[in-house]
């Protein structure tokens, strides 16, 4: 039924579907390949092992924590860089999204040399008896580091395309900047907020580099789903596949949420 609403006004040339189909096959085939190897009948048993249960629980807990951090810190950052101009704002914009394109190991090394026991900040923290390495906190920090840019970039893009008219009207009617923000700007940002959060959460679930170089791998403490998969690969390959299916399912669900919210939002503005 939703098909009926889709405008038919912009038909695409037919040949375009050939490369488009190739592109889709390019990303879909490896995933299909993975799914064909999954021992589906043994899946429940493989996922019920203490290692799998602990890894899943730890991943969900740490990702919830890193999502809160991402929103609490990322939302003000997105607002600030979207509404700032000048060279420093441009620098801030680049820095804010840099972790998105860093290889996982580089992200891990960066955190290690900063927060590790001999790191830039870590050495001082260590003097106070605070050591982050090998703790669950290290996992959350690593996840937030790589995931926050996805949230920031989504919210910032939405802010830039926001019609400034609403905010200006509210301001001329005497609303304070905080009131404009909470009553006008944030509600208008809601779709970008949700889709950005979903993407950040999906990215946090897959975080690997920081945990590998810095947080370590201990069941129930720092061994998240990706860590458990990496280890199981060598010990029990079927368990690695089973856990991969879980990760794949969660990521697909989050991407679907992000996509649906985006579509709903654009549908509203079209209408």
């Amino acid at each position: 039924m939703s098909r009926a609403r889709t405008p038919q006004a912009r038909p695409l040339p037919g040949w375009l579907f050939v490369p488009a189909g190739l592109a889709l096959a390019f990303v879909a085939l490896p995933i299909a390949g993975l799914l064909t190897r999954v021992p589906w009948l043994r899946l429940p048993a493989l996922l019920a092992t203490p290692e799998s249960v602990d890894a899943l629980a730890l991943s969900l807990q740490t990702c919830a924590a890193s999502l809160i951090l991402t929103i609490v810190l990322g939302l003000p950052l997105a607002l600030a860089i979207a509404r700032s101009t000048g060279p420093w704002a441009a620098v801030a914009r680049v820095l804010a999204v840099l972790p998105m394109v860093l290889p996982p190991v580089v992200a891990g090394l960066a955190l290690l040399v900063t927060l590790g026991r001999r790191g830039l900040l870590g050495a001082h923290l260590s003097a106070f008896g605070i050591e982050i390495g090998f703790t669950t906190l290290a996992v959350v920090i690593g996840q937030t580091f790589v995931a926050m840019p996805y949230f920031v970039i989504a919210v910032e893009a939405a802010l830039r395309t926001l019609d400034p008219g609403f905010e200006q009207v509210a301001a001329t009617l005497g609303a304070s900047p905080s009131r404009v923000l909470s009553r006008i700007t944030l509600p208008l940002l809601a779709p970008a907020f949700v889709s950005g959060a979903a993407m950040a959460l999906a990215r946090a679930l897959g975080e690997f580099g920081a945990t590998l170089t810095f947080a370590g791998s201990l069941q129930g403490v720092t061994q998240t789903l990706p860590q458990a998969i990496y280890l199981a690969r060598e010990v029990e390959p079927d368990a690695a596949l089973a856990l991969s299916v879980v990760l794949l399912g969660l990521a697909a669900a989050l991407m679907a949420v992000s996509g649906l919210v985006n579509r709903a939002a654009s549908g509203v503005s079209d209408g």
Binding site: G133, T213, G216, S217, Q223
Partner: peptide, 20 residues
């Protein structure tokens, strides 16, 4: 242990970096 690593290299890395 505080961590059970995948390879000997990862174990050694944690010691040389001073984390362990």
């Amino acid at each position: 242990p505080v961590s059970q690593e995948q390879t000997v290299t990862d174990v050694l890395g944690k010691v040389t970096s001073g984390e362990a």
